[in-house]
């Protein structure tokens, strides 16, 4: 277990999530990609705490914030999906590429 190994794992999770967020058509699947990217941040935050600065809680707090971001992102994402689905019967991004309300 080294810092490099943990960070490379975090980078891999981030890149996979980025791929998902860019390729998926369904808004719900895009949110899964974003969650996977934040998952990488979780791993990196924990690794920095353990390998660089374990004497203070800063690394743990980054993880705490990232976990909160994940939950809030999902809640807002589903609310936006519900709103656009209700207004225009749209659940894929290709149908929502204009700015018309």
């Amino acid at each position: 277990m080294t810092l490099d190994a943990f960070l490379i794992l975090a980078a891999a999770l981030f890149a996979v999530g980025l791929y998902g967020a860019l390729t998926q058509q369904s808004i719900v699947m895009i949110m899964m990609g974003l969650e996977l990217m934040v998952n990488g941040v979780l791993v990196a935050g924990g690794a920095f705490w353990y390998f660089v600065a374990p004497a203070t809680a800063d690394g743990q707090l980054v993880v705490l914030v990232a976990v909160t971001v994940m939950a809030l992102e999902m809640a807002m994402g589903f609310a936006a999906t519900t709103a656009i689905f209700r207004a225009r019967d749209v659940d894929v991004t290709d149908d929502a590429e204009d700015l018309k309300g």
């Binding site: 891999a12 699947m29 899964m32 996977l36 998952n39």
Partner: peptide, 10 residues
């Protein structure tokens, strides 16, 4: 496991 299941999602 984390990366393989992550790729599997998509």
């Amino acid at each position: 496991g984390a990366v393989v299941t992550g790729i599997g999602v998509f």
